[in-house]
Design a protein around this nucleic acid. Structure first.
Length: 670
RNA sequence: GCCGAUGUAGCUCAGUUGGUUAGAGCAGGGGAAUCAUAAUCCCAAGGUCGUCAGUUCAACUCUGACCGUCGGCACCA
């Protein structure tokens, strides 16, 4: 029976553009699919976009677009990205597609039929003045809002609930029988302890917005994010031949931040919808994050970061090539663990592994073909030496090891084994010294050596293909071979020696891999905003991060034209002097300030989230700018802020706005 | 503060079920070679495996505490 391999990435929320972290997950999925395809399996690689929810509804509103038009545009950014990274998903599902909406509604109905969905209500405490929900413990004596001192109201909102609480035991049993359901193993432990802690029913519908999939039979409700999103993995196949042939997924890649949804909610939903244990996903693979200087990549850290270069995958792929980017992501990061993202280390990795090891091996072997009419020499078995045989054996071992690693999946180890084989090829080449054989006129031995090296390069080109498909094919072209074209039931993995036939016409060409010499490297660093020693200003140590040449994104809708009068009527900015500042126990980011605004009522208390950037002592006496006409804001624990300080920057490198000269507290900013 | 990770050569990381001199790549040092995009190959050097206790005949590998770093949450906008 034909093996099959179904791999998924999360569907990406279209609220933001893809960054290198998003690209990472997709590249891994693509590489796994390519590996399994090479083995002759029927593969299916699914990705897509998640397009519902209040956030997107609002974002569209702000841009004066219909939600559909907005998500259409955003989804394109993802769809267009993947080919640039040589990713070839077999399908791209959008949660706003009809097939998905219908599929999810069917799934919902099946959960209803199982008795697992019921209509309930959220009960909450609500302060009309704050327009916000409160929790019991925030309230002052007598159920008063701590901000306004007014009584809060008890409000209820209808919501459908999923009886997750009923699935705890079944889930635990399932984990026990399928210890590789969640990987790496430490993540399974986390999931198990979460479930053991008891599960609460999930609220899975909302009436407070409409941009979502209507609940069957009750269209006031739209489905809440996870119920909608998780089923994409199923709806992409539903109603087609694929469902029977491919379900369930073999590997579902997820970031560790969304593991819980995939490892707990998702199987519970499926169980409820009538899927037996053997029809549940085989493995939820929780991969790590890419870090820059130990920080998670995120939207707020886009652009140059600490001199390590951009995190925009398109710019990187344009500068160094998609193959190289893919190779780096797969080789440098150990799947399941966090990895460092850095353009300089990408360049150095590409140079030493790809150009100087693999590319070089090809380049140094090809010139010898001139002794054989430009063709792969024929080397009869009796001309082979122990070293030749040893090389063959080594290749077989490496191919086996790499295949096992890819199947694991552990791409970084697979690629390590691959490069190690190419390294051995260089060693063999040195020891065999074909240039001496050529001078001595020993064509029999020369044929053996050259054919062995060329075949080794072929082997390496296949082993590299999941990571660097276009470069692998470029190597193959020089070897006179066709591009790799996986077929179902044909195992192309190079377990057997001799795939490169004697007398094949070679086609030497330009070096396959860029060398990234000093000049190229400088060019790349420049393009990708890498700060090198030369370009870095002196004494960079503690200096606040230079205002980066921010590609001023018009992301936040610019406020419409505003007259001066309107502005002054809206925002009341005042100069103020900090009288006192103290840390707040248990609130790492907050400082409690006493600030003089020149008001008769005396100084105000302002809570500001600047503790990571400013020591309290450093603030006393400082002139700051305060938004004076904000309503009081409750920070819990009896802390109420009566104003806001103007500041900008990341929370750990924030700077407060001030003026060059001191003026009387209370002076209005104009 | 709670929860969770992590701490191995200058850098990035491997170290399987505890067992002789702890591994690789990169960088740096020395040498060989000259077929190759000055690429390659060899050699040497470099680590009290975060700290302190404990279990054991034996711990980088197990247990505990502590320290450092990071992430999530809380809190923040």
């Amino acid at each position: 029976m034909t093996q099959r391999f179904y791999v998924t990435t999360p569907i990406y929320y279209v609220n933001s553009s893809p960054h290198v972290g998003t690209a990472y997950t997709t590249v891994v999925a693509d590489a796994l699919a390519r590996f399994h395809a090479l083995r002759g399996e029927r593969t299916f690689f699914l990705t897509g976009t998640d397009e519902h929810g209040l956030k997107l509804e609002r974002e569209a509103q702000r841009k004066a677009m219909s939600p559909q038009a907005f998500v259409d545009e955003m989804s394109e950014r993802f769809r267009d990205l993947w080919p640039k990274l040589l990713c070839r998903p077999d399908d791209f599902i959008r949660t706003t597609e009809r097939r998905h909406e219908e599929g999810v509604q069917r799934a919902w109905q099946r959960c209803v039929d199982s008795g697992d969905i019921y209509l309930g209500s959220y009960e909450g405490l609500y302060c009309v003045a704050c327009e916000d929900h409160k929790t019991e413990k925030e309230l002052l004596e007598g159920n008063l809002c701590p901000v306004h001192g007014r009584p809060v109201e008890r409000v209820t909102e209808q919501s459908y609930f999923f009886k997750l609480s009923a699935y705890g035991d079944r889930l635990l049993e399932f984990y026990k029988r399928n210890p590789t359901f969640v990987r790496p193993e430490t993540r399974l432990n986390e999931v198990v302890s979460f479930v053991e802690g008891g599960l609460r029913d999930l609220s899975i519908s909302r009436t407070s917005f409409s941009w979502g999939i209507p609940v069957p039979g009750d269209p006031k409700h739209v489905m809440y994010v996870w119920f909608d999103a998780l089923f994409n993995y199923l709806t992409a196949l539903a109603g087609t031949e694929r469902e029977g042939a491919l379900w369930p997924p073999d590997v579902q890649l997820v970031g560790k931040d969304i593991l819980r949804f995939h490892a707990v909610y998702w199987p519970a939903f499926l169980m409820s919808a009538g899927y037996a244990d053997d029809k549940l996903p085989r493995t939820i693979w929780s991969h790590g994050w890419l870090l820059t200087d130990g920080q998670k990549l995120s939207k707020s850290r886009e652009g140059p970061s600490h001199g390590r270069g951009t995190t925009d995958p398109v710019r990187v792929a344009d500068a160094v090539g998609a193959d190289v980017l893919r190779y780096f992501l797969l080789r440098e990061v150990s799947l399941g663990q966090d990895g460092e993202w850095s353009v300089p280390s990408l360049v150095s990795r590409a140079r030493s592994d790809l150009a100087e090891t693999v590319g070089n091996l090809l380049n140094r072997a090809l010139p010898f073909a001139k002794h054989f009419d430009g063709r792969v020499p024929h080397a009869p078995a009796e001309t082979l030496s122990d070293a030749d045989r040893a090389l063959e054996a080594l290749a077989a071992t490496a191919a086996r090891d790499a295949a096992a690693a890819w199947a694991e999946p552990a791409p970084h180890r697979a690629l390590e084994a691959t490069i190690e084989l190419a390294r051995a090829g260089n060693r063999y080449f040195d020891e065999s010294a074909p240039w001496r054989l050529a001078k001595a006129g020993d064509l029999a031995r020369l044929a053996a050596v050259v054919s062995h090296v060329l075949e080794l390069v072929r082997v390496v080109s296949v082993m590299l293909w999941p990571a660097t498909p276009s470069k692998s094919d470029a190597i193959r072209a020089q070897l006179g071979l066709d591009p790799l074209a996986p077929r179902v039931d044909a195992d192309l993995w190079p377990l057997a020696w001799g795939g490169l036939a004697a007398h094949t016409a070679l086609a030497p060409g330009q070096p396959v891999f860029a060398k990234f010499d000093a000049q190229q490297q400088a060019q790349i660093f420049k393009e990708l905003d890498v700060t090198t020693e030369e370009t870095k200003p002196e004494a960079p140590a503690k200096a606040p991060k230079a205002a980066k040449p921010a590609e001023a994104k018009p992301a936040e809708a610019p406020p419409g034209p505003l007259t001066y009068e309107q502005l002054m009527a809206t925002v009341d900015l005042r100069l103020a002097k900090v009288l006192a500042a103290e840390r707040i126990p248990r609130k790492d980011k907050l400082l409690k300030l006493s600030v003089d605004l020149g008001e008769a009522a005396g100084p105000r208390t302002i809570i500001a989230g600047i503790a990571l950037a400013y020591a309290p002592e450093a603030l006393v006496g400082k002139q700051v700018i305060v938004v004076a006409n904000l309503p009081p804001r409750d920070f819990g624990g009896g802390l109420v802020s009566h104003g806001m300080l103007l500041a900008a920057g990341p929370s750990d490198g924030l700077s407060l706005a001030t003026f060059e000269k001191d003026h009387a507290p209370g002076t209005r900013v104009k």
